[in-house]
């Protein structure tokens, strides 16, 4: 592997991991607060899975960089400055109401399922292997959100209104899913990763159809969408401060 490929792959993996980590963190905020017990359990599990997937991607990045896979994930999560994270603003947004979190999870997971299907075909075997493992677990997420989105969209006037408000807010942020990930353009020629823009086209057709059937109208996107992963939302510094507070109090603590 050339130095350029190494760097590109590590950047790519860390961006994947950051998305999973931050989405998982937002999901975890529902623990003890979800509207019904079943959903409390479901969101806690979604959070656990996403954070577990983040760990797999960080570990793989560690092996690419020659770092210690046992320590690297914690270093990245607990001791990296907020400005060095490469997650999308889509996953940073506060959890909102339950409709908002459910719809975000659906939009993200529906895209991720296509990306993972592409990564399973990767010419770089470690990437294909990890994607295969994650894809099967993610099927359960998508199954869950695909059951809830129409249930809420076609439910009561209130559930429909909440879902529509969530979609109006989320849709512009979701457009950034189609932007290439860090490192992607260097990895594409060797068929190590799928191209985000073509995944986005497939995703966009699929979710538009699905949302329409759930009585939800996709809004027009006005103006430019921020897709630069080095630019974070106003909510992100607080999220990272919360996430890192305890670890930074005592970096040598044994858990």
């Amino acid at each position: 592997m050339s130095e350029t490929q190494k760097k590109a792959l590590a950047d790519y993996l860390i961006a994947l991991a950051d998305d999973e980590l931050i989405l998982g963190h937002r999901d975890s905020e529902w623990t003890g607060h979800a509207p019904i017990l079943e959903e409390d359990i479901a969101f806690a599990n979604l959070a656990l899975d996403e954070i577990g997937h983040a760990r797999l991607w960080y570990e793989l990045a560690a092996t690419v960089l020659g770092a210690d896979p046992a320590r690297f994930p914690d270093q990245q999560v607990y001791f990296r400055p907020a400005a060095q994270f490469r997650c999308l603003q889509l996953v940073e947004l506060p959890k909102g109401d339950w409709a908002f979190s459910m719809l975000r999870q659906y939009l993200f997971d529906a895209f991720e399922q296509h990306r993972l299907a592409g990564l399973v075909q990767s010419k770089h075997k470690p990437l294909a292997d990890a994607a295969g493992r994650i894809r099967n677990e993610e099927l359960y997420h998508l199954r869950h959100t695909r059951a809830w989105v129409p249930r809420l969209g076609l439910g009561t006037a209130e559930s429909q209104a909440r879902m529509q408000a969530a979609l109006d807010e989320l849709w512009p942020y979701a457009q950034a899913l189609g932007a290439p990930l860090p490192g992607e353009l260097d990895l594409l020629p060797a068929s190590w990763v799928p191209g985000s823009s073509s995944l986005f086209d497939v995703w966009s057709r699929e979710v538009r159809e699905f949302l329409k059937e759930a009585s939800l109208a996709v809004p027009e996107v006005q103006g430019d969408v921020e897709s630069d992963r080095t630019v974070h939302s106003e909510y992100f510094p607080t999220l990272i401060a919360d996430l890192q507070e305890v670890a930074r109090l005592d970096p040598e603590a044994q858990w």
Partner: peptide
């Protein structure tokens, strides 16, 4: 099916409509 998620990542929750008992299922993976 009551919930695709359960008390651990590998379980999901069902109820039986005949004997009315709830039960867990080990997720196929």
């Amino acid at each position: 099916l009551r919930n695709s998620f359960g008390t651990t990542p590998c379980r999901m929750i069902y109820t039986c409509d005949d004997c009315k008992e709830p039960f867990e299922r080990f997720k196929p993976l």
